[in-house]
Design a protein around this nucleic acid. Structure first.
Lengths: 98, 98
DNA sequence: AAAATAGTTCGTATTTTTGCGAACAACGAA
DNA sequence: TTCGTTGTTCGCAAAAATACGAACTATTTT
């Protein structure tokens, strides 16, 4: 068995791709692309899923590094993590040779 | 519950992203980006996974529409599905440049 | 016809993902 | 302090993803 055939970049690509591998998460990121920040409640009103489910999707995006949450009591403001977003952008750009 | 909040495009995006949500599949698609076609055996030699597992990954990529297989007995030649690849390209391009 | 080659499919096991409602935590407002 | 608002976490269940080896299919070679 060979060592590290798969590069770090490919690992990262896969990680970001996986995070975007659900319609709800694509929706959220796309919304944030247009308005930069939002609240869970805003999304909850739009999307036909339980808020606990939405919370999990947001957590996934956060764990993947695409989002970051900021407390703005009593709500939480979700914003794009610009640094990682730019990284993902670059990775996909390279991948698709855009 | 509201109807169809999530667009077809977003569904497609998620579908492609999901297919790319594993390092092995990223590796395969990237390889094919550089050489257009390959055989399962070529990959099997490189990658530290069972050939049955590889076969499943290839099937996933095929099911997502990113690959297509062509019989070239006794092997199978895997090539990029250009049409769908272009679609994915466009979707991601739009997604990231917002 | 028998053996080798290339891959897929089957059966199985483990882990991860998805989803929900109920319970909980944190804070601001009454 | 009690209540309402906002969102997370918990407990659970069902489904899907990941991975392997063994068995199988199809073709080519010997």
């Amino acid at each position: 068995m060979k060592v590290q055939i798969i590069s770090d970049e490919q690992q990262k690509m896969a990680r970001y791709a996986k995070a975007l591998g659900h319609p709800v998460r694509v929706y959220v990121m796309q919304l944030l692309g247009s308005q930069h920040c939002c609240y869970s409640g805003d999304l909850s009103e739009e999307l036909p899923i339980a808020k606990s489910t939405l919370s999990q999707h947001l957590k996934e995006l956060k764990d993947a590094g695409l989002l970051q949450g900021e407390i703005e009591a009593p709500r939480i403001k979700y914003c794009v993590n610009k640094e990682n977003w730019a990284e993902a952008q670059q990775l996909f750009k390279g991948f698709f040779k855009i």
